[in-house]
């Protein structure tokens, strides 16, 4: 639940999602769910020339399981908060 909660705090911020098929999409994080499925608005595909079919698409739903990375905005990450939350989560899982 740690990352679900974390990504909820990022809604409205710009992120870049890199998928396992090497497609990278930048957009405004609209919502996230418990599977870390992600919905982006105002999307822009990083390598647009290679994916012309996505020019007609402005928002998208990405299945959590196909995500490789999500690049996060620097100002949205509170590292101390993350450390505490991670320790708490580790204790609860044990």
């Amino acid at each position: 639940m740690l990352f679900y909660s974390f990504f909820k705090t990022l809604t409205g911020k710009e992120v870049t999602v890199e998928l396992k098929n090497d497609l990278a999409i930048t957009g405004i994080l609209h919502s996230v769910d418990q599977y870390l499925n992600i919905k982006l608005n105002e999307i822009k595909v990083v390598d647009e020339a290679k994916h012309p079919h996505l020019l007609a698409v402005k928002n998208c739903f990405i299945r959590g399981s196909v995500v490789r990375y999500i690049q996060l905005p620097q100002d949205a990450v509170d590292t101390d908060l993350l450390h505490d939350a991670t320790r708490r989560e580790a204790r609860n899982a044990a």
Binding site: F7, R68, I70
Partner: peptide
Amino acid sequence: KPFLFVRGDV
């Protein structure tokens, strides 16, 4: 990259 989330299954 300044900050990166990495999915566990990779």
